[in-house]
Design a protein around this nucleic acid. Structure first.
Length: 769
RNA sequence: GGAUCCAUAGCUCAGUUGGUUAGAGCGCGUCAUUGACAUUGACGAGGUCAGAGAUUCGAGUUCUCUUGGAUCCACCA
């Protein structure tokens, strides 16, 4: 044995052996309860970050522990298509080539991203291997595999039949730049300083940061308690606006803050969430003035076609010129909502697919709430339960459509003839054409009026397209998006019902499909695996996605199978940067695990992270613990060397521990054996409670400060070397086994060098009392 | 505005239902060690547990308030 443990040479080789020998595959035994974990799938085209490392470390620890205990143990690997993130990355690449997603039809774009991901997915798989993850690769699943799509489609169909899906107009967070909607929880909020404009509205002055939406006003509102404006409530005001006379009703509503501005608000139900809700309460007209491209529409009169930002400038200038601007507060600080890519969100009313989470005939969410309250699903650490319960109690209907292509398409079809006013956009040669289907097919006489053209090269003249009759085939072939109205006629089906149908182009919210992850990975509904391994034992993930993901898995699990998808949820904290702040590219404090693996080894990195996360709180990357555990790896390596050296010096085989008589043991022997028993007990108890750091600490303290510092020291001077060495070797091997789930590589490497070893430490029986 | 969490050694953090001298890693000091390991050993210094009050025989631990910090949710036009 070398003087120093050289982890670099060994780790890869050891993993390869484990995998080839099939140790990662479960031994199905119907008389035993299995232990199953489904890996939260990392981004298929990304690379491992510190959060993934912690996740793998904890899950591998649990898996190896149970495997050694003799449970039929399965850890299912997978990777995620990571919808939005991948699409953003991919489009960034396109931009460099001077292209955009508009250069492709929907199908071409999907294929291009598919290829991109296939080319990049090797990295994360290799890194999972590098980490020592003892996953069963034969059960690997990608989130866009056929079996996943099939199940997700079937679930959607079932939900439609159960009356849990509806199509409705809804105020959504729309990003005009991304061309898609985002869920509330996906948004970021950023504080900004913007001008607050005080505009004259007839008898009132009111404050707004968005004067350009004034064309969509359908009321002004005051607080019912506000004495200043009491006489106006219920009346109609009439005044000169930018585009002629404006008539607005004055309503009274509690949502108006009397302290803010002048206490009067303009109400724009089409472009503001509060206003939308106020509009519902007061039955106001929803009057959109901003289109899907983020430009003002024809209701804005001369401002039509301008971007929101440009329109604001011009509207402000015009108001000032006409004397309609009272004054401007330039130092107003408020928060704006941003999409994942950092663009400003435009609240819009658009048709969407929804899950009714609490229908009167069947509640999708209630059983999932009950499952946690009743303890059918236990959450560790327990204080995180509050987050879950509050979220579930407040959860509203869930918008599940996204206007992206990189994901699972909603299996819905629209017949062209039955939906003549449905708008579509498609690529024809090099031009993107948008228009009503009946016009494009020349089934109406409104020729060309609603057609729009985006992009466009010299090869096609727009004039030629303005009145062209397209075939449905041409539209289908270059199809990018359909914009079905809220009351469109549709068919739910996996494959196209016939030639005259156009597909829904929206995809599912990623959480709609990943919410079924424990089901699809195990082969729901009727595979052998599913029947045996479901429900799983533990779901382990970061606390940040308890609402997004954990809640959805519990809802789908119960809805589809009647059983919870997992019995325990363990939520780990987020690994922060060395400075204790969140890692972010802009701060330049992102930690790349590769660097640490190269310098200290996988075992040390795993162990360091595990020991840093005692109670699920966020924690700064514990660099000095990683170093400490690297030293520890070397320490136990040298303990092994010592035993081999003693054996050689002594010149005889070390006797089996079982052959040592109790009466031959001295006080030191008895003490160390007793302490071993205590450690075994502690490790089991702490792991049972998900107290990984405490378990790790117990082994560390025992091996280093008892076994090495005390017991080994006295072995050196013992006369009865046969007894001492037998005890030492026994205690050492037991300790190695305890340590193996934490530090798999170094323990295996030592194990292979020790006399009397078997095939592999990872399939050795777990030490028992 | 609503909520959760945190404040313990120079640094990063444990301390689980309140119970004898408050722990670890790193760092620091003294000494030792050239045959397992300098990625070592022995010994040691260092904490009025943010502050104030309350409950209790007893509080780092429970409660209230104050101060400072982190995060989540909802958001005011």
């Amino acid at each position: 044995m070398d003087k120093v443990y050289n982890f670099k040479d060994k780790e890869k080789e050891i993993y390869k052996t484990w995998e080839e020998k099939g140790y990662f595959k479960p031994h199905i035994d119907s008389s035993k309860k299995p232990f199953t974990i489904v890996l939260p799938p990392p981004n298929a085209s990304g690379k491992m970050h510190t959060g993934n490392v912690l996740m793998v470390a904890i899950e591998d620890l649990l898996i190896r522990w149970h495997r050694m205990k003799g449970d039929p143990t399965l850890w299912v690997p997978g990777t995620d298509h990571a919808g939005t993130e991948t699409q953003i990355t991919f489009e960034r690449g396109l931009k460099k080539e001077g292209k955009s997603r508009f250069s492709y039809s929907r199908e071409e774009l999907y294929q291009a991203i598919w290829d991109f991901v296939q080319n990049n997915k090797g990295q994360i798989e290799n890194q999972l291997r590098q980490m020592g993850a003892s996953v069963d690769w034969s059960r690997y699943t990608f989130t866009l595999d056929d079996k996943v799509i099939k199940t997700v489609h079937a679930t959607f169909k079932k939900m439609v039949e159960d009356g849990l899906i509806y199509r409705g107009d809804y105020m959504v967070n729309y990003c005009p730049k991304c061309g898609t909607t985002y869920a509330d929880v996906e948004l970021k909020h950023e504080e900004r300083k913007d001008p607050l404009y005080y505009m004259k509205y007839g008898p009132f002055v009111l404050a707004t940061v968005r004067p350009e939406t004034k064309f969509g006003d359908t009321a002004v509102a005051v607080n019912p308690k506000d004495k200043r404006y009491a006489e106006w409530i219920g009346k109609e005001i009439e005044f000169d606006g930018l585009n002629g006379t404006v008539k607005l009703q004055v309503i009274a509503d509690d949502f108006v803050d009397m302290e803010f501005g002048t206490g009067v608000v303009k109400v724009t139900p089409a472009h503001d969430k509060n206003d939308y809700e106020a509009g519902l309460r007061h039955n106001l007209e929803v009057k959109p003035v901003i289109d899907l491209n983020g430009k003002l529409n024809e209701k804005a009169g001369p401002y039509a076609g301008l971007s929101v930002f440009e329109a604001r400038k011009q509207v402000v200038a015009a108001l000032q010129e006409k004397g309609l601007m009272d004054h401007i507060d330039e130092n107003y600080i408020h928060t704006v909502a941003l999409c994942k890519a950092g663009h400003e969100i435009e609240p819009m009313v658009l048709p969407n697919w929804f899950v009714k989470v609490d229908a009167s005939h069947k509640s999708f969410k209630k059983p999932a709430l009950e499952a946690v309250k009743s303890g059918k699903v236990k959450i560790f650490p327990k204080w995180q339960e509050i987050t879950y319960i509050r979220w579930m109690e407040e959860m509203r209907d869930w918008p599940i459509s996204r206007q992206n292509v990189w994901g699972i398409r909603i299996p819905v079809w629209y017949e062209a003839e039955a939906n003549p006013t449905m708008r579509v956009s498609f690529k024809y040669k090099d031009t993107i054409i948008g228009g009503e289907i009946s016009d494009l097919l020349k089934r109406s006489d409104k020729h060309g009026i609603y057609r729009t053209f985006i992009g466009g090269e010299d090869s096609v003249h727009k004039e030629d397209l303005a009145d062209k009759e397209f075939t449905l085939e041409e539209i289908k072939e270059g199809l990018q998006r359909v914009f079905p109205l809220v009351d469109s006629k549709f068919v739910v089906q996996d494959e196209s019902p016939g030639q005259n149908y156009l597909p829904e182009t929206d995809i599912f919210d990623t959480w709609f499909s990943s919410g079924q992850w424990p089901l699809v990975t195990l082969g729901y509904p009727d595979s052998k695996d599913f029947k045996y391994f479901y429900p799983t034992a533990v779901l382990e993930t970061g606390w940040e996605i308890i609402r997004l993901w954990v809640s959805r898995m519990i809802m789908f699990g119960i809805y589809l199978t009647g059983e919870v998808p997992f019995e325990n949820v363990y939520l780990h904290g987020i690994v922060r940067a060395l400075d204790g702040r969140k890692m972010s590219k802009s701060l330049g404090n992102v930690i790349n695990p590769e660097d640490y693996i190269n310098e200290y080894g996988v075992d040390a990195l795993r162990m360091g992270l595990i020991s840093g996360t005692a109670n699920g709180k966020d924690f700064a990357f514990p660099k000095d613990r990683v170093i400490a555990y690297k030293h520890f790896g070397n320490k136990i390596w040298n303990m092994g060397r010592f035993i081999l050296m003693m054996r050689e010096q002594w010149g005889k085989e070390i006797p089996e521990f079982a052959s040592v008589k109790d009466s031959d043991l001295n006080l030191d022997d008895k003490a160390v054996l007793e302490e071993l028993q205590t450690v075994i007990k502690t490790v089991d108890e702490e792991l049972e409670k998900f107290r990984f750091a405490d378990a790790a600490e117990a082994i560390y303290q025992f091996m280093w400060h008892s076994l090495a510092d005390k017991y080994i020291e006295q072995v050196k001077t013992r006369e009865d070397k046969d007894v001492a060495l037998a005890v030492l070797q026994h205690v050492y091997m037991m300790s190695l086994k305890l340590l193996h789930p934490f530090m798999p590589f170094v323990t295996e490497e030592i194990y292979q060098k020790m006399p009397g070893h078997n095939e592999s430490i990872m399939i050795e029986p777990w030490p028992t009392k």
